[in-house]
Design a binder for these strands. Structure first.
Length: 340
DNA sequence: CCTGCAGA
DNA sequence: TCTGCAGGG
């Protein structure tokens, strides 16, 4: 969760074809967490193998990655490193919230309140170290590269946008605060989604460029970070009471320094979870590293071992995925004997 | 989220 | 060919 700039910005709708042959630095935690929350049965139970290990993240990662590669998009997954001190308070709060949600989910499930149970289940998602390791193992087997960030994955991904990497792939706007020049959202193969009203809503890939955001809002990158701090970020999730996107924008436009903003009437009584100056500094200069990675060939036996042998995936479905993967790679590097 | 199937 | 739905692990 983080900053919601969607109310202020109209993202540009694009298609997968606009990302042909482009590398995307995909925020791995964001993506896996999304899978874990969403890939569930009606009552909120995640997919599990016969030993009771959750497998939702592997299912999502496998099929999503194949879909990207079928569209000749080149994903590089970026994992989180060491948790920054700024996040430790929020992290323990989230753990507590997760545990409460888990208890309520069990209760509602037993009472047969299926849809209420589902929404609690999504809030109870916990990405464990084992899940992360297995995800990396699957990516290795698929020949898909990943890098480990020194600190926040979003920050690392943001720093990679440039010559090789076209954009950050994430649902989370925070990568813009970390200075990503470009991000893309909704990297899903589905074209529609059920809306709350009951109908279906069209969903398309969205492209957001930092330069355009700053132009449209008429703020600097630094001021965008201040907006985040006012609205709430991972490092001060409560933000300032009563300040949403519009008020935040108005306030930052009227000031030249964070110090001045903190003295504003609306802001000055706020108890921040962390020193706002430190939050500002972290967004503007996060720990990132030069990284190297390369795309490899898929090891089909290893993929089958991870998914079918170890976690009870249907061999038929996995094989059909492998077939798609193979054709995707063939079209990327057409051989001399291919008829095109 | 995803695939695969049924029925239009 | 498209859309909606069930079930995946």
């Amino acid at each position: 969760m983080g900053v919601d700039l969607g109310e202020l910005i109209e993202p540009e709708e694009i298609g997968f074809e606009d990302l042909h042959n482009k590398e995307l630095a995909i925020d791995a935690m964001n993506t896996l967490y999304q899978f874990l929350s969403i890939i569930r049965q009606r009552d909120g139970t995640p997919l599990k193998d016969s030993d009771g290990n959750v497998t939702s993240h592997l299912s999502g990662l496998f099929y999503r990655t194949i879909n990207l590669m079928e569209n000749e998009i080149r994903p590089v997954y970026v994992f989180d490193g060491e948790m920054p001190d700024l996040k430790s308070k929020e992290s323990s709060k989230r753990r507590k919230k997760r545990e409460e949600a888990r208890d309520e989910w069990e209760k509602l499930k037993d009472e047969g309140k299926i849809s209420e149970a589902y929404s609690k289940a999504t809030q109870s998602s916990k990405l464990t170290g084992d899940m992360i390791e297995e995800s990396k193992r699957l990516l290795d087997a698929m020949g898909v590269p990943y890098v480990e960030a020194p600190s926040e994955g979003e920050a690392q991904a943001a720093s990679m946008v440039g010559d090789e990497v076209y954009a950050v792939g994430s649902q989370d706007w925070d990568c813009m605060l970390f200075g990503a020049d470009r991000m893309v959202r909704n990297l899903t193969s589905r074209k529609t989604r059920k809306s709350s009203g009951g109908g279906t809503k069209k969903i398309s890939v969205e492209r957001i460029e930092l330069e355009n955001v700053l132009d449209e809002l008429e703020v600097s990158h630094r001021q965008l970070v201040w907006m985040g701090i006012l609205m709430g970020t991972d490092f001060n999730p409560d933000g300032v009471h009563g300040i949403g996107p519009k008020t935040a924008l108005k306030i930052v436009r009227e000031h030249d320094s964070l110090e001045d903003i903190l003295e504003e009437d609306k802001v000055k009584d706020t108890e921040f979870e962390n020193d706002p100056e430190l939050i500002e500094e972290f967004f503007l200069n996060p720990p990132v590293e030069e990284t190297s990675y390369e795309f490899g060939e898929p090891d089909k036996d290893e993929i089958r071992k991870v998914l079918v042998e170890d976690h009870g995936f249907s061999e038929k479905r996995v094989n059909s995925g492998l077939k798609k993967l193979e054709t995707a790679l063939e079209s990327r590097q057409p051989g001399l004997d291919s008829f095109v």
